Amino acid sequence: MTRPVNILAICGSTRKGSTNEVLIDIIADLYRSSTEFIRFEGLSDLPHFNPDLDTETPPPAVTAFREQLRAADGILICTPEYAMGVPGSLKNALDWVVSSMEFSGKPVVLITASSMGEQAHQSLIRTLLVIESDLPESSRLLIPFVKSKVRDGKIVDEQLLQAVKAVMESMLSKFIGQQ
């Protein structure tokens, strides 16, 4: 028997019950037979990035985040756009892993789901590529007007459901035969 693919899911919104959190739940449910989703719950606990603290012994919350990233086979990021940019808490988390390289070569799916989202999506793509994430175009999804497509804990837009499956399959195909 093969082990499930271990996916660390990071929600860029810190609001409980956010649409992006719901998307993570939907995706985890869709792939429950072949994956194990672990939600990163410590986004709000990470201290503001400070290069002076980015040493061999960073703050405990940073160490825990880095350990979860290293243990994951792949990473799913679902995030909104705030004020035409990346949510500060998500950008802060990414800043903490620039020097430690946990994203280097790691398969990532990036879903930006917001009212618009294009600015944050493009910014995150650039950041994730700079930190050497494995982020092909097939693993990127921008979902504008998300609240019209995700309601009551379900994806109500069939085209979106197929797009979500396509980005996840893009990442999960990397693990076929490796388990």
Results as ranks from 00 to 15, higher is better:
S100N: 07
L46W: 05
S100R: 12
V22I: 15
E21L: 06
N50I: 05
S114G: 09
A72V: 02
V86I: 14
L124W: 00
R126I: 09
G117M: 01
A9C: 00
A71K: 15
S99Q: 10
S99K: 14
V167K: 06
M101D: 11
L141R: 07
L46Q: 05
S148K: 15
S44L: 02
E102D: 11
V130K: 14
L30G: 08
P107Y: 05
P59N: 03
F175D: 03
E169N: 15
A93C: 02
I7H: 07
I27W: 03
P4C: 10
K147G: 09
K91G: 11
I75P: 03
L129S: 11
N20G: 08
F37E: 02
D157S: 13
I125H: 07
K174V: 05
V150E: 03
K174D: 07
D45M: 06
I77L: 02
L43C: 01
S148N: 15
L8A: 06
M84F: 15
F65E: 08
P51W: 08
L160M: 10
I143A: 03
S99I: 05
V22Q: 14
T19F: 01
S115C: 10
S18T: 00
K174A: 11
L172D: 10
K147W: 14
L172P: 11
S173M: 10
E118A: 14
M84A: 15
K149D: 04
I24W: 02
I7Y: 06
